[in-house]
C-alpha cells in the first residue's frame, strides 16, 4: 500500500477499503492542515476546516474520478472551505483592536498592544518564534489569490495542477506566485526580518 498512488488508494477507498482512506489521511493530513493554518492564520479554524475537508472526502468519494489527481481534488475541497470561511469572516468582521489577533496562538497579542508597545523587538532581537510570527503575518497579508498559489505550491502541488484547481491560466498562476514571493519579502522586511 505504501507504493500505491493516491488515486489507486482512492479507488480502493471507493470500493470500501477503509485502510486506503487511513493511508491517504496519513499522507496528506499535515499538508492540508498547514495549508489551512497558513490560509486562516488560526489553529482552531484550521483544525475545524481540516476535519471538514476529510469528511467531505469521505462523503464525496464516489464522485472522485481517476482522471484527476487526488491532491487537486483534495485541495479544491480545502480551498472551497477556506473561501466559505473567508466570506463568513468578512460578514462578521468587526475586529476590535483590543482583541487578540490569534486567540488560539501562543503569542496572542492585540493589535493595539503591538502598536503601542515600545518594547517591540527590533531586527536584532527577533528570535525564532517572532520570526515565525512575522512570516505568518506576512503570509496573511498576501492577497488570497497569491496566497493560495504560494501555499499550494509549498505543499507540493505542481503549477499545472494549481492552475486547474484555481481555474486560471498557467502563466497567471506563475505570475501570482512571483508577486506573492516579492510581496512576502517586502512584508517580512517591513516586520524587521532581514531577507
Amino acid at each position: 500500500m505504501e507504493n500505491l498512488s493516491d488515486e489507486s488508494l482512492m479507488e480502493m477507498f471507493q470500493q470500501g477499503d477503509e485502510s486506503a482512506f487511513e493511508k491517504l489521511l496519513q499522507r496528506h493530513q499535515s499538508g492540508v492542515y498547514r495549508f489551512l493554518l497558513r490560509f486562516c492564520a488560526n489553529r482552531d479554524t484550521a483544525a475545524e476546516l481540516c476535519q471538514e475537508t476529510w469528511l467531505r472526502v469521505v462523503a464525496a468519494r464516489r464522485k472522485f474520478e481517476r482522471r484527476s489527481k487526488f491532491t487537486t481534488w483534495l485541495y479544491t475541497i480545502a480551498r472551497n472551505l477556506c473561501i466559505d470561511q473567508h466570506r463568513r469572516s468578512l460578514k462578521r468582521r468587526a475586529v476590535s483592536l483590543e482583541a487578540p489577533e490569534n486567540p488560539g496562538g501562543e503569542n496572542a497579542m492585540a493589535p493595539i498592544d503591538r502598536i503601542a508597545d515600545p518594547s517591540q523587538p527590533t531586527d536584532e532581537h527577533l528570535d525564532e518564534s517572532r520570526r515565525a510570527q512575522a512570516v505568518s503575518e506576512a503570509i496573511g497579508s498576501l492577497p488570497s489569490k497569491q496566497r493560495e498559489v504560494l501555499l499550494m505550491r509549498e505543499e507540493g502541488l505542481p503549477f499545472e495542477e494549481i492552475a486547474r484547481l484555481v481555474g486560471a491560466p498557467l502563466n497567471t498562476v506563475k505570475s501570482r506566485m512571483r508577486y506573492a514571493l516579492q510581496k512576502l519579502r517586502d512584508e517580512l522586511r517591513l516586520r524587521g526580518v532581514e531577507v
Binding site: Q29, S30, V32, Y33, R34, L37, R38, A47, C50, R131, A132, V135, S136, I139, L150, E154, L184, L188, V193, V195
Partner: peptide
C-alpha cells in the same frame, strides 16, 4: 522562511 514554518497537524 516559509518552509521553516512547517507545522504538523495535531
Amino acid at each position: 522562511l516559509v518552509r521553516n514554518q512547517s507545522e504538523e497537524a495535531p
